Simulated scan of single mutants.
Amino acid sequence: MKYLLPLLALLPTLAVPAPAWAALDQAAYVSLAASVLRVEAPRQRGGFSLGSAVALESDKVVTNCHVTRDATAIHILRGGLRYPARWQASDIGRDLCLLDVPGLGAQPVALGRAAELTIGQPVTALGYTGGMGIQNSTGAVIQLHRHDGSRVIQSSNFFNSGASGGGLFDDDGRLVGILTFRLRGGESHYFAAPVEWVAQMLADAQRGSFRQVMPLDSQQLPYWQTHPASQPRFLQAAVLVRNDRWPELEALARDWLRAEPDDTEPRQLLATALARQGRADEAGAVLERARVTPIPSPAPSASTTR
């Protein structure tokens, strides 16, 4: 996180109507809460890392690699008992680690699809925020960022340290994302890895990608913790927005739009850059061509933490 902390700011987002929060009913919440578990991982350099995990099978859970990357052992807490993870499959770049936990006996969640989400759709986050008891947060999808073959979900659901690795669920109780990192300073700075990455990882693990639990490669970082120049465009854009570097944002957005002409996000960013340079007519034309909702002015700068 050493690069993100001083650099990220709020991304411009689509203006969406305030949704009527469709919180899960009590029965659905109780059922899902039993499938979102606490992670404890003693670290190689001392101390513990605390996080959350979601049950995909009775003996397999998924969490974030930034929770377990320095772990000499990993334990999953369920029903007052601590179960050791014996094997781990990791995708550090996507910040996802799959754990094999013999005897866990957890109730698996149903998998949805991040690709089927829509802007403004209600979602519920479940995780051990603060490392204590499980907490839920209702919110909505703010943006869907194309990255690595799927969509990173940006939502307004509050979560904090300890909830990393928890679940983001649609209003049918299906897992759509894994809570991963957040940006300080507003109600829409929460990001989740798409469940499509999880499903792909689970399929790969069935083909023998599990390894004994041990500290992971300390030189490799998740995409959101890498040097700014190596981050995906939607994170690079945040730096330019925060620093009011509108000509550079315009250049980035135009390059992005040439590379991905069917993606609405660079078009939104281009319109923002043009408007902030006093070129409202050009900004309006960009939006009109895409028939997208005008973008609100960028919010104040924000810093980042997980």
Score class of each variant (00 low, 15 high):
residue 5 L to R: 15
residue 7 L to C: 12
residue 12 P to C: 12
residue 13 T to M: 00
residue 13 T to L: 11
residue 17 P to K: 14
residue 19 P to M: 05
residue 20 A to Y: 00
residue 22 A to I: 00
residue 26 Q to C: 01
residue 28 A to N: 02
residue 33 A to P: 02
residue 37 L to Y: 03
residue 38 R to I: 01
residue 43 R to K: 13
residue 45 R to P: 02
residue 45 R to V: 08
residue 47 G to C: 07
residue 47 G to V: 03
residue 48 F to A: 05
residue 49 S to D: 10
residue 49 S to C: 14
residue 50 L to T: 09
residue 52 S to R: 04
residue 56 L to A: 02
residue 56 L to E: 02
residue 60 K to Q: 14
residue 62 V to T: 06
residue 62 V to D: 03
residue 65 C to T: 13
residue 67 V to L: 07
residue 68 T to H: 09
residue 68 T to N: 06
residue 71 A to L: 00
residue 72 T to N: 09
residue 74 I to H: 07
residue 75 H to W: 14
residue 76 I to N: 13
residue 77 L to C: 01
residue 80 G to E: 09
residue 84 P to N: 12
residue 85 A to Q: 05
residue 87 W to L: 15
residue 89 A to L: 04
residue 92 I to M: 12
residue 95 D to I: 05
residue 97 C to P: 09
residue 99 L to T: 06
residue 99 L to M: 14
residue 101 V to F: 09
residue 102 P to V: 13
residue 102 P to E: 13
residue 103 G to E: 10
residue 105 G to K: 11
residue 106 A to N: 03
residue 112 G to K: 07
residue 114 A to Y: 04
residue 117 L to K: 10
residue 117 L to A: 09
residue 118 T to R: 12
residue 120 G to M: 10
residue 122 P to I: 03
residue 122 P to Y: 01
residue 124 T to I: 10
residue 127 G to K: 05
residue 131 G to Y: 07
residue 131 G to K: 09
residue 134 I to D: 02
residue 135 Q to M: 13
residue 136 N to H: 12
residue 139 G to N: 10
residue 141 V to T: 04
residue 145 H to N: 12
residue 145 H to G: 02
residue 146 R to A: 14
residue 148 D to M: 08
residue 149 G to T: 06
residue 150 S to F: 00
residue 150 S to G: 03
residue 157 N to Y: 00
residue 159 F to P: 12
residue 161 S to R: 15
residue 161 S to N: 15
residue 167 G to K: 01
residue 168 L to Q: 01
residue 170 D to Q: 08
residue 173 G to V: 01
residue 175 L to C: 04
residue 178 I to T: 06
residue 179 L to N: 14
residue 182 R to H: 07
residue 184 R to K: 15
residue 186 G to Y: 11
residue 190 Y to K: 00
residue 192 A to G: 08
residue 192 A to P: 09
residue 192 A to R: 02
residue 194 P to N: 05
residue 198 V to N: 03
residue 200 Q to K: 14
residue 201 M to Q: 11
residue 201 M to D: 06
residue 202 L to I: 10
residue 204 D to L: 15
residue 204 D to W: 12
residue 204 D to E: 15
residue 207 R to F: 13
residue 213 V to E: 08
residue 215 P to D: 11
residue 216 L to Y: 07
residue 218 S to F: 11
residue 219 Q to M: 04
residue 221 L to Y: 11
residue 223 Y to S: 03
residue 226 T to N: 13
residue 226 T to W: 11
residue 227 H to A: 08
residue 229 A to H: 09
residue 230 S to M: 10
residue 230 S to R: 14
residue 230 S to G: 04
residue 231 Q to R: 14
residue 239 V to Q: 13
residue 242 R to F: 01
residue 243 N to Q: 15
residue 243 N to I: 00
residue 246 W to D: 09
residue 246 W to N: 05
residue 248 E to R: 06
residue 248 E to L: 04
residue 251 A to V: 07
residue 252 L to Q: 08
residue 257 L to P: 02
residue 261 P to L: 11
residue 261 P to S: 06
residue 262 D to K: 10
residue 262 D to Y: 00
residue 264 T to N: 13
residue 265 E to P: 00
residue 266 P to Y: 09
residue 270 L to R: 03
residue 270 L to Y: 03
residue 270 L to W: 06
residue 271 A to Y: 03
residue 272 T to C: 03
residue 272 T to L: 09
residue 277 Q to F: 07
residue 283 A to Y: 06
residue 284 G to S: 10
residue 285 A to Q: 14
residue 286 V to W: 04
residue 288 E to P: 00
residue 291 R to W: 02
residue 293 T to I: 10
residue 294 P to D: 01
residue 295 I to D: 08
residue 299 A to T: 05
residue 301 S to D: 14
